[in-house]
Design a binder for these strands. Sequence first.
DNA 1: CTTATTTGTTGTTCTACGTCAATCGACGTG
DNA 2: CACGTCGATTGACGTAGAACAACAAATAAG
Lengths: 193, 193
Amino acid sequence: MHEHLIKTIRQKVNLTDEEAATFERFFIPRKYRKRQYVLNAGDKCQYLLFVAKGLLRSFTVSDDGDEHVMQFAMEGAWITDMGSFLSGDDAIYNIEALEDSELLLLTRDGMEELLETIANVERYFRVLMQNSIIALQKRIRLTQMYSAEEAYLQIMELQPDVFNRAPLQHIASYLGITPETLSRIRKQVSAKR
Amino acid sequence: MHEHLIKTIRQKVNLTDEEAATFERFFIPRKYRKRQYVLNAGDKCQYLLFVAKGLLRSFTVSDDGDEHVMQFAMEGAWITDMGSFLSGDDAIYNIEALEDSELLLLTRDGMEELLETIANVERYFRVLMQNSIIALQKRIRLTQMYSAEEAYLQIMELQPDVFNRAPLQHIASYLGITPETLSRIRKQVSAKR
DNA sequence: CTTATTTGTTGTTCTACGTCAATCGACGTG
DNA sequence: CACGTCGATTGACGTAGAACAACAAATAAG
């Protein structure tokens, strides 16, 4: 279960075998069933999560009860409530397993210790964060410049691996549209070809 | 002009006076006039920019010629085309001075050298990136869960310093609405009180 | 001070998407 | 196997915001 983690890290920075072994030790493996919540908004987010297997979503719930998906995370991805994890504030996001999933959990203390123990870890996380920023900006442009249909076509073309696994209602939420609208878009798209 | 930079860094990590002096030396001070472009989409983005004074915007231009604002940056903020700066790809963003501005420019090589020379720099940038992620996620939720009017009211309440300085057309673009719609929203809002 | 240019406002019309409600199918559970 | 629940689809109708066009106000330029 940890091999995936090490392989992912080594795509961005070098780790000696010894370092890799140390690194692994800080992660708590845990399994979640489909529909199980990994984090509830309002709680403190205690972990940074690495997805070894499965699919998760993070989302907020607005006053009127509507859900708004922030992120999907599949194998090899990280997910957390960054604000809560880093600052100890109450979490604003919920995190839910959309499939049976295997996660590797890193606590705040664990992370701090890792950053101090292994030189390249600080660099790894910086690079990881940079890539997240690029992805988030891309996502902002997606809804800012494209119609719902165009945005839908783009994500399906560029990230089919995630979005073919996610339920339609959550894809709609991710795009900021209703399930009804997404359903109509899909109908139109399939009619066109 | 560099004092602001050092003060900003020291809000997040410790630097000895010696380190601070070294740090400063890597930054190229440069002034830009209002309306001047700091970066043109299509060029390589050579610098990470620290705003010592003034106000900038980064934005993309879509095929139909519409502009889409990604970010405003005022004193104390950083701005760049992250993808281009880090990977050497062509820039997709333009960066323009909205006021006469004083910037401190850091090259890619300069950044690498700084990361190697001063221990806490790596940490500083990681923390900076983390905060950017939190801010970007907040921004995504802004348009995902709120109406244009609510979103407008929120940014004006939460970041009045930036948004009271930025031209309305660019605020509209940031929110993903037309200038006409923003104008009507403002009229309604002011009528309500 | 006068004229251009840019930026913001207002009115009218149009459309993409939302809302509400009903239906159908796929699962999961007793 | 019947029933309840949940997810997706479809239809009818409503609305926020876009598009287009004209105008006003503010800035810049001569």
